[in-house]
Write a protein that binds this DNA or RNA. Sequence first.
DNA 1: CAGGTATTTAGATAATTACCTAAATTTGTA
DNA 2: TACAAATTTAGGTAATTATCTAAATACCTG
Lengths: 101, 101
Amino acid sequence: MKLLEIIKSLSNETRLNILEWLKDPFNHFPEEELSEYTPELGVCVSDIAKKAGMSIPTVSDYLKTMSAANILIATRRGQWTYYRRNEKSIQELSEFIKNKL
Amino acid sequence: MKLLEIIKSLSNETRLNILEWLKDPFNHFPEEELSEYTPELGVCVSDIAKKAGMSIPTVSDYLKTMSAANILIATRRGQWTYYRRNEKSIQELSEFIKNKL
DNA sequence: CAGGTATTTAGATAATTACCTAAATTTGTA
DNA sequence: TACAAATTTAGGTAATTATCTAAATACCTG
């Protein structure tokens, strides 16, 4: 649990938003763009970038930062990279703050 | 609960350290410097700056940032400003991450 | 009120982060 | 193999954050 790295990965409004959107993708991404979506995989980079209204490279980097911190999980499937939340890590973060911080 | 403001206030190694030190001041600050210490009040700016090995203005600003985010509580007592943890807010943060984030 | 101590505010520069475009890479497909 | 789509990597500038010194405030005390 690298607390500082995790906190830094969350210290940006767009990255926090992404985490919230991924909590309920069907509610936040147009269904037709989720054709490939399964909860197993998550949402692909370009759909997230479109929703965020930011460039794909920027969002790609955000997502990489968050998976490096283990808050998101990336799955490459063909030419797409899907990202989903790492619920276990998020709960661990909550517990760490509750008991150790 | 301004999540982003709170997270930003914690996204710095020294500020995280301060929060941990304040969890148990007697263990982290020389007793003679805590002569005025009571758990009611916390620890004063210059003691924290000395422990952090940073300048007083820098640490003063850190502490201000963290109290603005409501993670610390400041009490002015004469010429000293004492800072202590806001345990309630820290627990709220943990709960927010657990349930809402 | 004068001097002293603690803190805060101002003002600067260095370092880091944000975020873009262009180029390179990866993978599917004709 | 060659082209197209998705993503990542590079490289650059703008914005923010880090952190210092100097100056200004606050408050105590004789």
